[in-house]
Each structure stands twice: as structure tokens, then as C-alpha cells.
Design a binder for these strands. Structure first.
Lengths: 252, 252
DNA sequence: ATTAACTCTGTACGCCGTACAGTATAACGA
DNA sequence: TCGTTATACTGTACGGCGTACAGAGTTAAT
């Protein structure tokens, strides 16, 4: 499949891993030399530095000094490992108390916290979360974020809608930013260099008179952002729109 | 890397492919038995039916009745093939004239057209487009979509911002929807079945009193949407917010 | 007739996740 | 104390991926 997905493993095995349920039987064989946390942390370290695509069972095993198949004694498989990495990242998010602050400020804090998460762990933005991680970190995060929408007169369903909409925007931005960085790394060209390589070639085939708006606006946007994707600008612009959009719901 | 990326191939080769620039030299060897379009169409057919992950050089070669390496005489590589598939999809988007209509209606049409694209070709939503496809289809699409924002008193840069914001929302929704479908296919469980498998296990470890909002809102949202991700609802809710957000910019 | 350009193909390399079988280890019941 | 047995760990192997490379066959220009 394209990209990684959360909640893709066996439900029972995944929940046992996420909540660290101890194996029922007393442990009879040799002691484990590593721990689940060591594996999860190793995965996170590789993903942070080189992207989730670099996280392979072979790679983590090498980093941890064990053989590849040993990984499977700590974690049922790659799918469950990704869930564990994700839940651990959620668990580490700061959750400052913003009770009593204006709703825009509280929602901005939620948005910023998620953006910060995606900046320290760019791979988080790329995980497909249709089937959410149901671990303790995810629960704590959901509870905290809903609290920012509590007491605004929204129905329960509207609270969930609004949160989905807000985080959807933040992760969309974060994904674009992570994507831009990954493209630069993989191609060994920054945006400016890439455009410099493409512009002269495109000029030979593109008819600016046939597409006047595209030519004019494309040039203006490229010049304004230095031909590079400006993640901060997109986030600032978008978040203002998102809050204005929610205002129509909250202050109705 | 996780997932497919556009604009990841060699710039010169990619642009030659997208604009179908004829090879300079007269053709000396045997005639080709297939065509670029046949390869692009075969890739699109597989991606539509089974997802972009199912599109491999070996698979397309088999479908087209040639050997794997023959693919490379039509297309420089997988990266360039994805660009060609994407540009062809853009080129096929309908572009009805909405000149003179209210701006909300015009932008809704743009949003709906992109949503329709992502429904006939769910893989489109999953392509990372930090480095855009610079083919004729992409250019025609950009021109058309900008025209919906022309004459509203926005600066060129604001037009690009607004379009980025709008399409960002649409593709975010589309990605969630495609993701939900892919998860259901891959896991052989629909959302309801997946939740039914997880709920009893989660109930054993989740403390509803520690996370009262999460428990209450999660239940309400799950009940309202039949425990399934409701893509139409998210889109309708979100698009209203997006347009309200842009109204603050347009009608200022 | 020769040569150069081109199409097509088979093999091979290094990645991936992981199934499976085998061996070493440590705690339990006797 | 001595099996017995659950467990930890490892090596090999399979089928997938993109694609580099070398070679064989085909056609048009010289």
C-alpha cells in the first residue's frame, strides 16, 4: 500500500501492545535483552531522522544489535509497531491547561500543539489514520482537545466535527510541509533549485498566452515565496480561515 | 519513501513525457507495439481498481502482454509514469464555464470537480504533490481554477493562497475517504466491524471516568455516523467552513 | 552490404515483511 | 536433582518491489 496506516494490525494484539498488557503466564524462558519501549524508541528515532520509509525490521534490528526476526518477539509486526510509535508520540504531547481562555486561543493552542508534533515527528503527518490508534496516548490527546471545545454550546457531534475539521487542516498543512522536506532530501534539490531546473524546460512548451492567469499568478506566488513552498504562510493563512469558519458555528 | 510522489523523476525526461515531445531523431529501429498512452491508461486502470500500490512495472507489463523491462522503453521509470497518470487525470477534468456566477457557487464547483476527480481516481488524493506535475493537464486545471477567483479583488498571491487553501481542504477530505475505503478493503472489515472488534477489547482497558469527554463525544459521534467515517458529512461541514473563512477575505 | 539506432527480453542485485524451523536458555513440576 | 516446557533468539527462504545491464532481434540510413 502507499504509505503507512494506523490500526492495520490485529486488534487484539495491537491493544495488548498499546496498553502493555502483561502476558498472562509467568515467564518461563530466557529474559528479553531489550524492551518494547526500546524498539518503539528506535523506530521513532529512525523515522524522525530519515522518514517512516526508512523504518524496516532489518534496520531496527541492526540498530538494536539483534537479528531481524528477534523484532517479532517484541512486537507482532510492522503495523502494530507503527501504532505503538504513534501512540507514544501522542502521549508525549504537552497538554497545558487553557481553561477560561477565549475559544480562539484554546483552538489555536490545539492546532499549534499538533503542528509541533508534526515538526518533531514529520512522519506522523504521513500516517493514514482512518483506523485510529486506540492507545492511552490517543485517548489522552482526544480528551484534551475536546476540552478546548467544551462549553461553547456545540452539540457532541458538532464538537467532534469541529475537532476533525481543525486537525484535518493542521495535518494537511503538516503533510505538505513534511512532503516538501522529503522531496528536497530525496531529490537532493531544494524547491528553488527544482524550479530553476524546470522553468527553462517548461518555458519551451508552455504557452503563457493560452493560460494568462496561470502564468501571472504562478509567477506572483513563486516570487512572493521565493519559489519555495512557504509552510508557515499556508498555516497562518489557513488557520485564520479555519477559525473564521468555526466562528460562524460557535457564535451563531 | 511512504507513498507516491509527483515530480520525483528527472525534470527533462518528465517534461518530455508529459508534453509528448517527439524524439528528435528519425526512428531507426523496430516500431513500438504499444504507446505511452496505453501504458498510462493501464496504470490508471490498475490504480483505480486496486490502488496505486498495485501499480508495479511487473504488473502493468503483464497486463499489457510485454516483459517487465519493455515498460522502460515507453516511460523513463515509475516516478515519471505517476506524473503522466496524474496529468492525464487533470486533463480529463470537466471545466464548465461559470463566469458571472456568485463566487461561492464558482468555488463550490471547483471543490466539487476535485472531489469528483478523487472519487473516480481515489489514488489521486494519495499522491504527494509538493513538486507539482507540470504537464498540459495541470496547466489547464490551474488556469481554470484561478478563473473562479478572478475579479474578486484579491491580489495574485491571495488568489494562489485561497486556491491552495480550498484544494488543500478538498484533498484532505478525499484522502480521508480513500484511506477509509482502502482500510476496509485491506482489512476485509468495514468500519462498523472494525469498531465491533475493538470496542470490547478497549472497554477492558479504557477508563471512561478518567476521560469523560472522550467517552461521551466519541460515543455520540460513533452513533451519529453509524460507527463509520462519514465522508459526505465531513465534506459538507468543512466546505461551509472553508467558504465562510474565505468570505472574510473576499467580502472585506 | 554495412552500420547505427532502436525495441524488446532475461538475469541479477539489493531492498522489503515475515513464515517457519531450529537451537539455546531458564524456570517450573516431579 | 532432573527432565519438561515455554520462551528468546537466529538463519534461511519466499515472493514482492524498482531497475541496471547485457544481449538478441529488427529496421532504416548510409
Amino acid at each position: 500500500m502507499s504509505g503507512e496506516r494506523s490500526g492495520a494490525g490485529d486488534p487484539a494484539k495491537t491493544l495488548r501492545l498499546l496498553w502493555r498488557e502483561p502476558g498472562a503466564a509467568p515467564r518461563r524462558g530466557p529474559r528479553q535483552t531489550l524492551s518494547i519501549d526500546a524498539v518503539v524508541d528506535a523506530g521513532t528515532a529512525v523515522a524522525d531522522a530519515e522518514g517512516l520509509a526508512a523504518v524496516s525490521m532489518r534496520r531496527l534490528a541492526t540498530d538494536l544489535g539483534v537479528s531481524t526476526m528477534t523484532m517479532y518477539t517484541y512486537v507482532p509486526g510492522k503495523a502494530e509497531l507503527v501504532d505503538a510509535m504513534l501512540d507514544a508520540a501522542y502521549a508525549r504531547m504537552p497538554r497545558p491547561d487553557t481553561t477560561g481562555r477565549p475559544w480562539r486561543e484554546r483552538l489555536t493552542a490545539v492546532a499549534d500543539a499538533n503542528r509541533a508534533l508534526c515538526r518533531t515527528h514529520p512522519w506522523v503527518a504521513g500516517v493514514h489514520t482512518a483506523r485510529p490508534t486506540l492507545g492511552p496516548g490517543a485517548m489522552a490527546r482526544y480528551e484534551y482537545e475536546l476540552s478546548a471545545l467544551d462549553g461553547l454550546g456545540l452539540s457532541d457531534v458538532e464538537m467532534d466535527d469541529a475537532l476533525t475539521y481543525l486537525t484535518g487542516f493542521v495535518y494537511g498543512c503538516a503533510r505538505a510541509e513534511a512532503d516538501a522536506r522529503a522531496a528536497a532530501t530525496d531529490s537532493a534539490m531544494n524547491d528553488e533549485q527544482w524550479w530553476a531546473a524546470n522553468a527553462p524546460l517548461l518555458a519551451k512548451v508552455f504557452d503563457a498566452e493560452a493560460y494568462p492567469l496561470a502564468a501571472r499568478v504562478g509567477t506572483a506566488a513563486g516570487t512572493a515565496h521565493g519559489a519555495a513552498y512557504d509552510a508557515d504562510h499556508a498555516y497562518t493563512f489557513g488557520l485564520a480561515r479555519v477559525l473564521d469558519g468555526l466562528a460562524a458555528l460557535v457564535e451563531r
